[in-house]
Amino acid sequence: MRQIVGYASGVFDLFHIGHLNILRHAGSRCDYLVAGVVTDEAAEQMKGRPPVVPLVERLEIVRSVRHVDAAFVDTSADKRLAWHQVRFDVLFKGDDWRGTPKGDRLEAEMAEVGVEVVYLPYTVHTSSTHLRAALDALTGPAGPVSDAGR
C-alpha cells in the first residue's frame, strides 16, 4: 500500500502552539509529513519583514517536532516548486486560508499536479504576528537596546 505524503509549510518564526497544532494535525492525517520551512528571503518577500529567528534555527526546531518526518527548505510562495522536489499528495494549510483569494489560488495550483489541499483548524489566539507585536511593544521595533559599547 502506498504511503500518503503530506506537506505543511510555513515560516515557523517564533515557534508557538499554533505551529505545533498545524504540524500535529497534519501528521495525524498522513503517513509521512514533510514540513516546509520558508527561507528568510521568501518570508520577507511574502510578509514584508524578515523572520526574527534565522532559517537554520527554524529548521532545527521544526525538524525536532515528533510529528514531522522531514524538514525541507521552502524557497517560494509557489508550492508547485516544492511539489516538484518533495512529491507530496496532500498540502495542509490553516483554515484561515479557506475561501480566500490566496486559498483559491493555492487549490487551483495544487489541482494542476493532483494534490489535495486540506484545511486544518487555525489557532486564533496565538500567532507570530501577535508575538512580534508584543515584543515590539516591549523593546521597540528596532529590537532590544544593547549595553554593548557603553
Rank of each mutant, 00 (worst) to 15 (best):
V73M: 05
L55N: 01
V68H: 00
A108S: 15
T126K: 12
E41C: 03
H19F: 12
L23C: 11
D78K: 10
S9W: 12
E44I: 00
V113L: 11
A134T: 09
K93C: 07
L33N: 04
L14I: 03
V73C: 07
D89N: 15
E44P: 02
G6T: 10
R98L: 12
L23G: 03
L20I: 14
P141K: 08
D69F: 06
Q45I: 12
L55H: 05
L59K: 01
L120P: 01
V86I: 15
A133H: 11
P144K: 12
R24L: 13
R80W: 08
T129G: 13
R87F: 15
E116C: 10
T129Y: 06
D104K: 13
D95Y: 14
R87S: 15
E116L: 10
L20T: 10
R24G: 07
E60D: 06
V52I: 15
A108N: 07
Q45C: 08
V52F: 09
V38K: 01
R66Q: 11
V53M: 05
V86C: 08
A111F: 10
P141I: 03
V38I: 15
A71T: 14
L33Q: 03
H67G: 02
P50H: 04
R2K: 13
V115I: 15
E57A: 07
R80D: 13
V65A: 08
D78Y: 12
P101S: 13
E44T: 05
K47A: 05
G18K: 01
F12P: 00
P101F: 10
S127Y: 08
L59R: 02
M110Q: 06
F12K: 00
E107D: 14
L14R: 00
F88M: 15
L106P: 02
V90R: 10
G27C: 07
D31V: 07
E112Y: 02
P144H: 11
V34L: 09
S76R: 05
R29D: 07
L138F: 06
D74A: 14
T100W: 04
V117D: 08
V37D: 00
G36I: 07
R98G: 00
F88R: 15
T129I: 14
W97H: 07
Y32G: 06
P101I: 11
C30Q: 04
S76V: 07
A26H: 01
P51E: 05
P144Y: 06
Q3I: 12
D78H: 12
L120G: 02
A35N: 09
L135E: 01
L135A: 04
S28C: 09
Q3W: 12
S64F: 05
V52T: 10
V53A: 01
D147M: 14
H16Q: 05
T75N: 09
D136W: 14
T129P: 03
V53L: 02
V90E: 04
A111V: 08
G27I: 07
A133R: 13
D104H: 12
V5P: 04
D13C: 09
A142M: 10
L106A: 07
A43H: 02
A111T: 13
L20H: 15
V65K: 01
R63S: 08
